[in-house]
């Protein structure tokens, strides 16, 4: 099992608040790694550091890219993390382009590829075959994912008008159009009904097993995390308190303490 991403001694401070404290974590290639922890434990901050939205105070984030070799993520701007390192994320509070159609959302995810094909828009303006072929390929890729996620009938609808569960799926489809090496999902099951969660499980397993995409998954819904994760890291107060297979984590006294609390303090247990 090769390591795709290794997080070493990551620390992120905001003024006096230490959101992540000396966190180390390994994300293996082609597996699903779950990250759990109570609210405010620093999970989303980890994502933000990973995808270049925050500059970590300290520590290193090394990606062993299968084609492009080793990369230091903490040195890359957020758009380069996606473009060069092919790490893509979704957001806890869905961030689609609401007035644009579902298809357009997925095409925008392929912006860099298309922009290169359009040669500073010149080839595009002139309608040269180079660009047309690239555009057709992009639509094709988008259509494939839309079909796979059962969204093809909604392709020409404005994304913002669709129901919540569908928007979650669109966001994942959009992320997949970037062709990620590592897909970071921030609470993808939040607000989904049980049937939708089950479909999500199936999708995640498909992505990982059939397509070889490594997935880093933040999730409160234990039916998702425990069923699909190969490996789980537990974070509390910005520190990693446990790590292991779902069974190991479930039985870890530290984790039970963090979730259920020792006494009446810290009752913010996840459902």
């Amino acid at each position: 099992m090769t390591t795709l991403l290794s997080v070493r001694n990551l620390t992120m401070r905001f003024g006096g608040l230490t959101a992540i404290d000396d966190l180390s974590l390994e994300v293996p290639a082609g597996r699903i790694t779950g990250i759990i922890g109570p609210n405010g434990a620093g999970k989303t901050t980890l994502f933000n550091c990973l995808t270049g939205f925050y500059k970590p105070t300290r520590g290193s984030l090394r990606l062993a890219h299968p084609q492009r070799g080793e990369m230091h993520l903490e040195r890359l701007a957020s758009h380069k993390v996606v473009r060069d390192a092919q790490i893509v994320r979704t957001f806890q509070n869905i961030r689609l382009f609401p007035k644009m159609t579902v298809l357009e959302n997925l095409i925008i995810a392929q912006h860099n590829r298309l922009q290169r094909a359009s040669k500073f828009s010149l080839a595009g303006l002139l309608g040269l075959p180079v660009y047309r072929a690239a555009e057709a390929a992009a639509i094709e890729r988008a259509a494939t994912w839309l079909t796979r996620l059962g969204l093809d009938s909604l392709a020409d609808h404005a994304a913002g008008d669709l129901p919540y569960g569908i928007q979650r799926r669109i966001e994942i489809a959009r992320a997949l159009c970037v062709e990620p090496v590592l897909l970071c999902l921030d609470e993808p099951a939040a607000g989904l009904n049980p049937r939708e969660s089950a479909e999500l499980n199936e999708l995640l397993l498909h992505l990982c097993r059939e397509r070889g995409i490594a997935i880093l998954l933040i999730e409160h819904d234990m039916s998702v995390v425990m069923n699909v994760s190969d490996h789980i890291g537990v974070i509390n107060y910005g520190r990693k308190i446990a790590e292991g297979t779902p069974e190991q984590v479930q039985n870890d006294p530290q984790v039970i303490k963090a979730y259920l609390g020792e006494d009446d303090e810290d009752g913010e247990a996840a459902p």
């Binding site: 912006h111 860099n112 828009s121």
Partner: peptide, 30 residues
């Protein structure tokens, strides 16, 4: 010129930027 640009990656990127800048960055746009 403008109508054609709108249908090209730049044009779509402009609109996407208007909708959500953070999402644009998350899609790898400069």
């Amino acid at each position: 010129f403008v109508s054609r640009l709108r249908r090209l990656p730049v044009g779509r990127a402009w609109e996407a930027l208007r909708e959500d800048e953070i999402a644009c960055r998350a899609m790898g746009m400069n």
